[in-house]
C-alpha cells in the first residue's frame, strides 16, 4: 500500500508548484494508473515516493514505512522502473542485475534461479552477457524491469514503463503487472497513453499542473463520461480547462 498525504513540492522558491497538496491511497492488490499531460507533475510525485526528491510538505508511506523517517525500510518495499532506462551503460546486463540483487539483499540460494527465470521471460538471456550500452531502448527497459523485480517487491512503481517496448514486451509487462496485483501486491504506474490506462488499471488518477483533478475506479470514471465520450476526450477536456 502507498499512502500519499498532503504532499507538495515547488521549485524556484515556491514560484513553480510542481505537485500541489496531493492525497492518494493506493491499495494492495490493485493496479493504479497515474495519468497526466507532459509536465503535469507525474515524475516529480514518483520521485518523491521513491526518495529521489524530498517533498516540501506531506507524508509518504510505503506499506506503513515513511520514506523520510525510515528510508531504507521503505525502499526495501518497492521495485522501481525509472522513465529513463539509460543507466550503467558500461556494466553488462548480468553485472547490473547482480548489483541490484546485492543492493536488495536477494538471498544467494534463489538469486540465480530468479535471474535466469526473469531473463528468459523477457527474452534477454542472449544479451545478459553484453554491455548495456549495446542494448536497444526496449532491451534497456527490460533489464531495468528485471532489476526492479528481483527482490519480489510488495510494491511496484513504474514511470512510463511502456515507452520504447515492442508490442510483445508491452503485452508481457501488462500481464506481469496483472499477476503482481492479483497476488495481492501493489502496482503504481504513470503513463500518458490513455489506452493503456483504460485497459490495465483498476483505479486511476488524472493529474494536471500538480493537482489531482480526477480520481476513482474505471467504473466511476466511466460514469463521468457523457454518452459516446471517450476517455481521451474527457482527458483533453479536463486538462485543457484547468
Amino acid at each position: 500500500m502507498i499512502e500519499i498525504i498532503g504532499v507538495s513540492k515547488s521549485y524556484n522558491r515556491g514560484a513553480v508548484k510542481a505537485v500541489d497538496n496531493v492525497n492518494l491511497t493506493i491499495r494492495d492488490g490493485e493496479i493504479f494508473g497515474f495519468l497526466g499531460p507532459n509536465g503535469a507533475g507525474k515524475t516529480t510525485l514518483i520521485k518523491m515516493i521513491t526518495g529521489i526528491l524530498n517533498a516540501d510538505e506531506g507524508t509518504i508511506k510505503i506499506n506503513g514505512k515513511d520514506i523520510r523517517k525510515n528510508p531504507i525500510d521503505a525502499k526495501m518495499q518497492f521495485g522501481f522502473v525509472p522513465d529513463d532506462p539509460n543507466i550503467f551503460a558500461r556494466l553488462t546486463g548480468l553485472e547490473y542485475l547482480n548489483f541490484m540483487a546485492d543492493m536488495y539483499m536477494v538471498p544467494p540460494e534463489n538469486r540465480l534461479d530468479l535471474i535466469q527465470t526473469l531473463l528468459k521471460r523477457f527474452e534477454m538471456g542472449a544479451a545478459a552477457g553484453d554491455l548495456i550500452q549495446s542494448y536497444s531502448h526496449g532491451m534497456k527497459q527490460k533489464i531495468v524491469v528485471i532489476g526492479a523485480l528481483l527482490h519480489n517487491p510488495p510494491v511496484w512503481i513504474l514511470d512510463e514503463p511502456m515507452t520504447g517496448l515492442d508490442p510483445r514486451s508491452s503485452f508481457d509487462l501488462k500481464e506481469m503487472m496483472r499477476e503482481h496485483a492479483d497476488a495481492g501486491k501493489t502496482v503504481f504506474f504513470s503513463t500518458h497513453v490513455l489506452d493503456v490506462a483504460e485497459k490495465v488499471c483498476d483505479r486511476l488518477a488524472i493529474i494536471n499542473k500538480g493537482r489531482v483533478i480526477l480520481f476513482g475506479s474505471m467504473q466511476e470514471i466511466r460514469e463521468h463520461l457523457r454518452e459516446n465520450q471517450s476517455l481521451e476526450n474527457l482527458f483533453l477536456e479536463l486538462t485543457e480547462n484547468e
Binding site: 548480468l94 547482480n98 548489483f99 540483487a101 546485492d102 543492493m103 539483499m105 536477494v106 544467494p108 538469486r111 540465480l112 535471474i115 535466469q116 538471456g125 542472449a126 544479451a127 545478459a128 552477457g129 553484453d130 554491455l131 549495446s134
Partner: peptide, 24 residues
Amino acid sequence: ARRKMLTSSDYKRLGKGSPALLSY
C-alpha cells in the same frame, strides 16, 4: 555484442553475491 546465450558457468561466476557496500 556477442548476443550469446549465457552458459551455466557464466551464471556460476556470479557467485553468492557480495555485501551491498562492497558491491557498490
